[in-house]
């Protein structure tokens, strides 16, 4: 079977200060090539200031069917959200 290299997931920071965002993936042999290919594939329209590439095989994912047990425990902990708190009438900048 032909070997098209590993799949690498690509994350791009569009401006300094912003988080790196997943944009897709590319095939490449080795990390230098992965970075170059990501640059050529995903920044053709000046979309980025920094690129991360991560080998797809190295990513561990939660399982969507288990969403419940994974994410529901925090549903009842709304005290973690700022809107949970009632501020006195007229208070500003808080």
């Amino acid at each position: 079977m032909d070997n098209q290299g590993d799949i690498w997931e690509v994350f791009i920071q569009s401006k300094p200060g912003l988080a790196h965002k997943h944009v897709g993936n590319i095939h490449a042999m080795g990390k230098e090539m992965a970075l170059q290919n990501a640059r050529d594939m995903y920044t053709r329209r000046q979309e980025g200031t920094c690129i991360w590439v991560v080998k797809f095989a190295d990513i561990t994912s939660s399982i969507p069917e288990e969403d419940g047990s994974f994410f529901e425990p925090s549903n009842d902990k709304i005290y973690r959200q700022a809107v949970h708190y009632i501020m006195p009438e007229g208070s500003k900048n808080i």
Binding site: G5, I26, H27, A28, Q36, N37, D40, M41
Partner: peptide, 10 residues
């Protein structure tokens, strides 16, 4: 490879 095609065109 597709990726390299794009690199050469760039």
């Amino acid at each position: 490879m597709l990726e390299e095609d794009i690199a050469l065109t760039n």
